[in-house]
Nucleic acid binder design. Structure first.
Lengths: 130, 130
DNA sequence: GAGCAAATGAAAACATTTTTCAATTACGAG
DNA sequence: CTCGTAATTGAAAAATGTTTTCATTTGCTC
C-alpha cells in the first residue's frame, strides 16, 4: 500500500488529509520498522504531539503496525504479512521475503479466530555476530 | 523450562540466586505474556527496581522474552517457539500450539542467519469480537 | 564464620507519552 | 469563492514508565 492509498483510507474514515499527516505517512513509508526518532527526523516540520497522534490514529485504523523487537517501539506499514530476522546479539532487524508459513498447518477453526494478517520473527545471530 | 532450570542458568552465569529473583522467575513462569503490572502483583515482596532489573537480566541471558502485541510490553519464558493470536478489536492474546511453520520454507542460508527460535503472531478478530 | 563483590530498595533523575487548551485549518455547504 | 464549523495542531504541563544513584544488605567462596 502506497502513501496515497493510506491517505485515501484516512479520508474515507472521515479524517482530514492535513499536510502533517501526509508528512508522517511519507516518513513511515520511506522505510520499514523505524523508531520514533527516525520517523521524527523525516518530519522536521511536524510537531512531536502530532506524530504521536498520527501513529495512534493510523494503527487504530490498521494501516500501520507497532512492533517491539527490542530497543523500543518501531513502526511499519501494515502489510498482510511480514517476516523479520532479529539478531539477539546486536539487535539488528532485517527482513526476509519468502513466507515460511504453511497455510495447511494454520488451522484456527478450533479457536473461531478470523485471521487478517500475520508476522513471523526469527531470533538468532546474524552473519556479522556469529 | 521450569523455574529451577532458569535459576540454575542464572547461577551458571555467575549471578546470585536471591529470594527476589526466585520470586520474579516464579511469577513469570506462572503465566505466559504477562504485563509488568501482573508480574509485580505476583511479587508483593520484591521492589519495583529489582523486578525491572531482573527482567532485563533474564532477557539479556535469553531466558525470557519481551513482547509488544499492543497495550504495553509483556513478558514470557523464552521457549523455542510460540504462537499468538492477537485480536485487533479487544487486544486479547491467546496461544495456539500447532506450529504453522514449514521448516522446508525457512531457508535462511542466503542471509547467513543462525536461527535459534521464532515466534508467529496472527492478527485478526477473536470469536467474541466477530 | 569472615570478607567481598553482587544485589537490593528508596529516592531522585530521566525519558517517553498523553493531556490540556487556545489558535489554526481543512473542507463541505451555500 | 467565502463562510462556518468541527477537526486538527502545537506548546506547555502533566502523567506515566523506566533507569540511575548510592548507602545498606546479603549470597557465596574460602
Amino acid at each position: 500500500m502506497d502513501v496515497g492509498a493510506v491517505m485515501g483510507k484516512l479520508r474515507g474514515g472521515g479524517f482530514k488529509a492535513t499536510p502533517q499527516r501526509w508528512e508522517v505517512v511519507r516518513a513511515i513509508a520511506a522505510e520499514q520498522h523505524q523508531s520514533m526518532e527516525e520517523i521524527r527526523a523525516r518530519c522536521p516540520g511536524v510537531g512531536m504531539v502530532t506524530v504521536y497522534r498520527t501513529l495512534e490514529l493510523l494503527s487504530g485504523l490498521g494501516l500501520i503496525r507497532r512492533l517491539d523487537l527490542g530497543g523500543g517501539p518501531r513502526w511499519e506499514l501494515a502489510e498482510d504479512h511480514h517476516h523479520h530476522l532479529v539478531c539477539e546479539s546486536c539487535g539488528d532487524v532485517t527482513e526476509f521475503d519468502l513466507c515460511p508459513l504453511d497455510p495447511g498447518l494454520l488451522d484456527l477453526s478450533d479457536h473461531g479466530f478470523e485471521a487478517r494478517s500475520h508476522s513471523v520473527e526469527v531470533y538468532g545471530r546474524c552473519s556479522v555476530c556469529q
